[in-house]
Amino acid sequence: MEHMTLASQLLQYIITGVTIGSIYAMVAIGFNIIYNVTEAINFAQGEFVMLGGLVMVFFRVTLKLPVLFSLPLTISVVMAVGILLDRIAIRPIRKPTVLSMVIATIGASFFIRGAAMFIWGKNPFDLPPFSGRNPITFLGAAIQPQSLWVLGFLVAVVIVLTIFFDRTIMGKALRACAVNPSASSLVGINVKYMILISFALSAAIGAIGGIVITPISLMEYDRGAMLAVKGFSACAVGGIGNFPGAVLGGILIGLIESLGAGLISSGYKDVFALLALLLILFVKPSGLLGSAEVSKIRKF
């Protein structure tokens, strides 16, 4: 039996790490969008990912719609959930503080998880991959075609978001709310509407994450919490509120997990990721790409 060379093993670890890391990055981006507008962490972010996967299963497997239809349908359904989350749980808070918003999102995450359990049951679901299951062999390492899709979607999300935040009025208004909500409302920006938009946007990105990862890892109702924790770590590593930081943090955590599991010990792979998180926060509390100046004036 042929041995796998160390070089191709390393390559395999890196491919795996980048794939998982891309999902963490998408969750982290979702955190950032809401954080930038409200300064609160949306603990239901992982639930958006779970919903993305399961709603896609509904359209793709139960109703047998083609990917081209079910993809936008799924994203819009999850966006609607994000909008409802804002209207039902966030906006009615009379004196919105960061803490009360965070608690509302925690409650919402329990509710969404419970509802998903009620609708889909507890069994995991599978989704056919976008383009076949035959792995591509590259220098002795196997690449699942779906991994390329995951990476491709992450790149697409980053490009679209960059254009949105830099080139459109709405994107610029969102950024203004992030810098100073009261000044933004003085110049005529509807801050409440912007919060709504931020929830819809991050729900959409969460949904995309769920849609692309389900063919690899299956999806069940309580997967969201773990993804939220990893995504939040990615956020903290990269610097909360910083988009390139989220991508960097996500992929870094994915790589540490995968290389740690492969080269050192799989039993302690989460420990390596958390150790890296702690180390980075000790050395640079604002995160790798976060600015110390900005984090000083933030409430959270």
Partner: peptide, 22 residues
Amino acid sequence: DEKYGPKDTDMTAQLTKIKGMS
């Protein structure tokens, strides 16, 4: 003797290591 978490998304790393040991 490899391990993984109950909510892990992928065990490729563990299996790759095993593949090396054949």
